[in-house]
Each structure stands twice: as C-alpha cells, then as structure tokens.
Amino acid sequence: MTATDSSILNQYLVGKEPFYQPQHDEVALFEAAYRKRLPVMVKGPTGCGKSRFVEFMAWRLGKPLVTVACNEDMTAADLVGRWLLDKDGTRWQDGPLTVAARYGAICYLDEIVEARQDTTVVIHPLTDHRRTLPLDKKGELIRAHPDFQLVISYNPGYQSLMKDLKQSTKQRFTGFEFDYPNAELEAGILVQETGVAPSIAAQLVTVAATARRLKGHGLDEGISTRLLVYAAMLMDDGVAPRAACRMALVQPITDDADIRATLEHAIDMTFA
C-alpha cells in the first residue's frame, strides 16, 4: 500500500470500538463472509442496530468503512465518480464505491432500496466472480482490491412494488435478518449506551413493546432501540420521564391523535 493509499483509507477507519451487543451468531458469520469476501445484506426494521453492527464489524476487522446513505436522487455517478471541471481543466473524482473497490475498504450502502434500480445495477459486477467495477465514463475497469467487501442494508417493512430490490440483486448477497433485541438484552443496551438505571431501562422497553404491537395497526414502524436511547439520554439530562418519552418515543413516529393517545396512556401507566 502506498502512502497515498494509506492517507485515503485512514479517514475511513473506525477509530474507537462502537458498542454492539450481539443477539445471535452474527459476528462469527460476518467474519466468515469477510474471509471469503462474500457480499452481505443486512435486513431489519428502522433503528434496530444494522448500521451499528456494520460499523462494529469494520472496527473488529480493522478495515476502513465507506458508508453511503442511499436516496432516490442518487445516480450511478454519485457511487462510481464523475469528471469535474477545475482551473486546470477536467479531472476525475472517484465516488465512494470506487474508492472502496480501488483501495480495499468495506463499502456500506445504507437503505439501498431508497436508490433507483438503474443506479444499484452498477454493483452487480462487484458481487460475483468478476469483482470488477467498470468506469464507463473514464474508460477504466477496476479490479476490486483483495480487501474490498460490499455490504448493503434495507428495511423490508418499507418494501413496495416501487421500492424493492430486484431478485437479480438480492441473489448476489449472503444475508442477515435483524430484529429488535429481546427485552432483557435491549434494557442492557440502554444501560450500556446511556448509563440510565436498569429499572428505567426496563420501563422504556415496556413502552416500546406496546408500540411495536401496533405495527400494522396504525403504525408503520414501532419504537426503535435508537429512540429508546434518545429518551434515556434526555432523562439523564434531567428531563422528566413522561416528557422525555413523549418527545423521543411518541412525536417522531406518529401524527395520528388516537395512536398518540394510546402511546401516552402506556407511558403514563409505565411511569406512574
């Protein structure tokens, strides 16, 4: 690795160990996938720890992590790169996918279903035996660095006919199915992440359980572990439990007055 390669990759290294609480054997399975450089798909609801897991694995493996937050306006050029004009004329600028493939990083495409299907097809040559990335506009064919791995994530709950991965894309990946942790594990995560008292953590998880039972019955998504962390952080700063819960757990997930009333009742009963 040249000094230039090293300086490019250093900015993507995960410098501090992220806290991640394994639920099953996902850590060992991801390590096995990385040893064979298999592409990985991580599925699960919003805020259940998908991105934290990928960040943790990059740290554990000691590999740079290039993250792309996918959106419907993202083009193939946003991923692979484009020609730019400057004072000296034109110059090529690699996109994040190209940087990862060229120099040897884990490339994480977060919520990939948000991107247009004509954009995501550019990953296909990187996810089979070819492990190549054609830069058509530059006339270059990149052969992926031996350390390169592609990881994608998405929320199956938001799938629709217009927002789903093609089977030709899905079947290029190994996969994990994530869900919210069980009550004891989730309470432990809150304690570890925020320092909140175990009794308060258990109460927050109880409120979350009520909301998650409403998924599909007025709520598109239940309360995520991420939002529970937010509520615990507010409490740690002195905000009253009920106010913290309304701010972090109710207002962000629904505008429906009846659903809000149900959740607020659960909060009042739990923090009576």
Rank of each mutant, 00 (worst) to 15 (best):
M162C: 08
K163R: 10
L165A: 13
L165V: 03
K166T: 06
K166D: 13
S168G: 09
S168Y: 09
K170S: 05
Q171M: 03
Q171F: 07
R172Q: 07
R172D: 10
R172C: 02
T174Q: 13
G175M: 14
G175C: 15
G175Q: 12
F176L: 12
F176T: 13
E177P: 07
E177T: 10
F178H: 12
F178G: 07
D179H: 02
D179Q: 13
Y180N: 02
Y180E: 06
Y180R: 00
Y180F: 06
P181E: 04
P181S: 05
P181V: 10
N182V: 08
A183F: 09
A183L: 11
A183G: 08
A183M: 04
E184P: 01
E184C: 00
L185C: 04
E186T: 00
A187I: 04
A187T: 10
G188Y: 02
I189L: 13
I189Y: 07
I189R: 02
L190R: 03
V191T: 03
Q192V: 01
T194Q: 13
T194V: 07
T194L: 01
T194E: 06
T194M: 12
G195N: 07
G195L: 08
V196D: 04
V196H: 00
V196N: 03
A197P: 12
P198K: 01
P198D: 08
P198H: 01
S199K: 01
I200G: 00
A201R: 06
A201M: 03
Q203P: 02
Q203C: 14
Q203A: 07
L204F: 05
V205K: 02
T206K: 15
V207D: 08
V207R: 01
V207K: 08
A208T: 12
A208P: 08
A209I: 08
A209P: 03
A209C: 07
A211P: 11
R212P: 04
R212S: 01
R212G: 01
R212L: 05
R212N: 03
R213D: 15
R213S: 12
R213E: 15
R213V: 00
L214Y: 04
L214D: 05
K215W: 12
K215R: 11
G216P: 14
G216V: 04
G216L: 13
H217K: 15
G218T: 15
L219N: 09
D220E: 15
E221F: 05
E221L: 10
E221Q: 10
G222W: 04
G222Y: 05
G222F: 00
I223D: 05
I223E: 11
I223M: 07
S224R: 00
S224C: 07
T225L: 02
T225Q: 00
R226D: 02
L227K: 14
L227C: 09
L227N: 05
L227H: 11
L228P: 03
L228N: 08
L228W: 06
Y230T: 11
A231P: 11
A231C: 14
A231E: 04
A231L: 13
A232H: 06
L234M: 03
L234S: 06
M235K: 07
D236G: 13
G238I: 01
G238P: 01
V239G: 06
A240Y: 14
R242K: 12
R242Y: 07
A243L: 14
A244T: 03
C245N: 09
C245A: 14
R246K: 09
R246S: 12
R246Q: 09
M247T: 15
A248V: 06
L249C: 11
V250D: 11
